[in-house]
């Protein structure tokens, strides 16, 4: 397992990230946790449908995203990578709109190299392989980074996409976020293998296991994979071993299926704390800087939430938009009926 940044905040060798990158990553990690808190609160108030927090996985998601160039590379997310999406150019308001049920305001803006979050487990993997294939065919430069969990590694789409990506030697970085649980199913019930990264061998490309709670290890390994892909070396599978400290989503109660001692142990390996220790020791972070950062984050979140709340709610017509480029006569008729139905009587 690749490890660079210890739990105590000491780094093996030198930091692969610049001071600015470390500070940016730490701010994003804090933002991620604050977004978790806010959206869970909004869900409890009935203003958000369902939310799956990132809590515990911040280093895996953010360390990998920071190895990408938003002007060159694409991100194909699963459903728990919004910090990576924010870093890649998704406005915070759009992210809040996703969970607050305003699907038009949630759209990925033009020019941002992101695909929408994927609710079907593993279904994004063939899309990512195809997109990477297109970059190669069009000699566009750039790579595609695709996120998925260890649960998705049991899906047929994982196998089909990995195999195709290997055969076509496409510029793809496969980020397997092994958070040890697919809802209640632990990883040892997901696979008899001790290492998911080893599957890469079967597809003819390299695979690595990294400490997914180690920002530096994730960043450095992803950067190597990006460079390999850019130079025509094809895909890489990176298994980021982390732990889902939070619940699967707001409808889940992990106390029913896992030992609290296991969670306590995971919290000792918190991905944010070790970056905080490192940065403090380097003199680029302090309690005062953190306090100012948290104030700023709070205000960003307030603004994003308010912006979504102030938007008009999409009406009945919205469900007929973007079904096809042009509506058929039959759909035009249904739209007219739906608008009529929605009119106050």
């Amino acid at each position: 397992m690749i490890e660079l940044l210890g739990v105590d905040g000491t780094v093996r060798g030198t930091s692969p990230m610049t001071s600015k990158q470390v500070v940016d990553a730490l701010r994003l990690m804090l933002l991620s946790r604050a977004v978790d808190d806010r959206l869970i609160k909004l869900q409890r108030m009935g203003r958000v449908g369902v939310y799956g927090p990132v809590h515990g996985q911040e280093a895996a998601v953010i360390g990998s995203a920071m190895a990408l160039d938003p002007h060159r590379d694409w991100i194909v997310p699963a459903s728990r990578e919004h910090p990576a999406m924010l870093r890649h150019g998704l406005p915070l308001m759009n992210m809040f709109a996703t969970y607050m049920g305003n699907f038009d305001a949630a759209a990925i803006p033009d020019g941002v190299r992101l695909l929408p979050r994927q609710q079907a487990i593993g279904a994004q993997l063939p899309h990512a392989a195809g997109l990477a294939w297109a970059l190669k065919l069009r000699r566009a430069g750039g790579v595609v980074a695709v996120y998925f969990g260890e649960g998705a590694s049991s899906e047929g789409d994982f196998h089909e996409a990995s195999n195709l990506a290997g055969v076509m030697r496409v510029p793809l970085v496969m980020l397997l976020i092994n958070n040890h649980y697919a809802i209640s199913t632990p990883v040892h019930r997901q696979t008899a293998a001790t290492e998911l990264a080893a599957r890469a061998d079967g597809y003819g490309f390299p695979g690595f296991v990294v400490d997914g709670n180690d920002l530096f290890a994730v960043y450095a390994t992803t950067l190597d994979a990006v460079n390999r892909a850019l130079s025509g070396g094809g895909p890489t599978l990176i298994e980021c071993r982390t732990y889902r400290i939070g619940f699967h989503n707001t409808s889940d109660n992990p106390k029913e299926y896992r030992d609290p001692a296991e969670v306590d142990e995971a919290e000792q390996r918190d991905p944010i704390e070790r970056v905080r220790r490192f940065a403090t020791r380097e003199g680029i972070w302090s309690a005062a800087i953190e306090s100012a950062a948290l104030d700023e984050i709070r205000s960003q979140i307030e603004t994003a939430q308010r912006q979504v709340e102030e938007l008009p709610r999409p009406g009945a017509a919205a469900i007929f938009e973007h079904v096809y480029e042009q509506l058929s006569p039959r759909l035009e008729q249904q739209k007219a009926e739906a608008l009529d139905d929605a009119r106050p009587s």
Partner: peptide
Amino acid sequence: AIVGASLGLAIG
């Protein structure tokens, strides 16, 4: 994969 990759190819 043929269909799924085709979607990605089209996006690309």
